[in-house]
Amino acid sequence: MTTGVRWWAEPPPGRTSYLADVDPDLLSVGLDPLPAGAPAVVRFHPAAGRTVAQYVGAFLDALDRAAVELFPRWLPGAERLDGRSELGLAAARALAGRLAAQSEHFGPFLADTADRALRGAPAAPGRFPAEVRARGLGSILASAYSRFAAAVLIDLPAELTPDDERALVGAAEWLAGHGRFTVWLAGPALRFVDRIPTVRITLPVYLKDLAAGPALSPAAAEPPPALLTWPPLAGLPRADSPAEQALERALAPHDWAAGRCWNHEFDWHLLAKTYRLDLFWPADGVVVEVDGDDHRSRWKYADDRRRDVQLQLLGHDVLRFTNEQVLHDPTAAALTIRDLLQLRRSSHSPK
Score class of each variant (00 low, 15 high):
1 M>S: 14
2 T>H: 12
3 T>I: 14
10 E>V: 07
13 P>R: 11
17 S>P: 14
33 P>C: 01
36 A>E: 14
42 V>M: 00
49 G>T: 13
50 R>A: 13
51 T>V: 11
61 D>K: 07
68 V>L: 15
69 E>M: 10
77 G>I: 09
95 L>G: 05
111 A>K: 04
113 T>A: 11
115 D>A: 12
123 A>S: 10
135 R>Q: 12
135 R>C: 02
147 R>G: 05
149 A>F: 08
151 A>R: 07
151 A>S: 12
152 V>W: 00
155 D>L: 05
159 E>D: 15
164 D>M: 04
165 E>S: 06
170 G>P: 07
178 H>Y: 10
183 V>T: 08
185 L>S: 06
187 G>I: 00
190 L>M: 08
192 F>G: 04
199 V>R: 02
205 V>T: 05
208 K>S: 13
213 G>A: 13
215 A>N: 12
224 P>C: 02
228 L>M: 05
229 T>I: 04
230 W>K: 01
231 P>L: 09
254 H>C: 10
258 A>I: 03
260 R>N: 08
262 W>A: 05
266 F>C: 14
269 H>G: 13
271 L>K: 15
271 L>R: 15
271 L>P: 04
275 Y>Q: 07
277 L>D: 00
278 D>R: 00
282 P>R: 09
282 P>A: 04
286 V>P: 00
286 V>W: 03
288 V>R: 02
288 V>W: 03
290 V>H: 07
300 K>Y: 08
303 D>M: 08
304 D>L: 09
305 R>S: 06
322 T>Y: 04
329 D>H: 03
330 P>L: 09
335 L>D: 11
337 I>F: 04
338 R>T: 03
344 R>P: 08
345 R>Y: 10
349 S>P: 12
349 S>L: 14
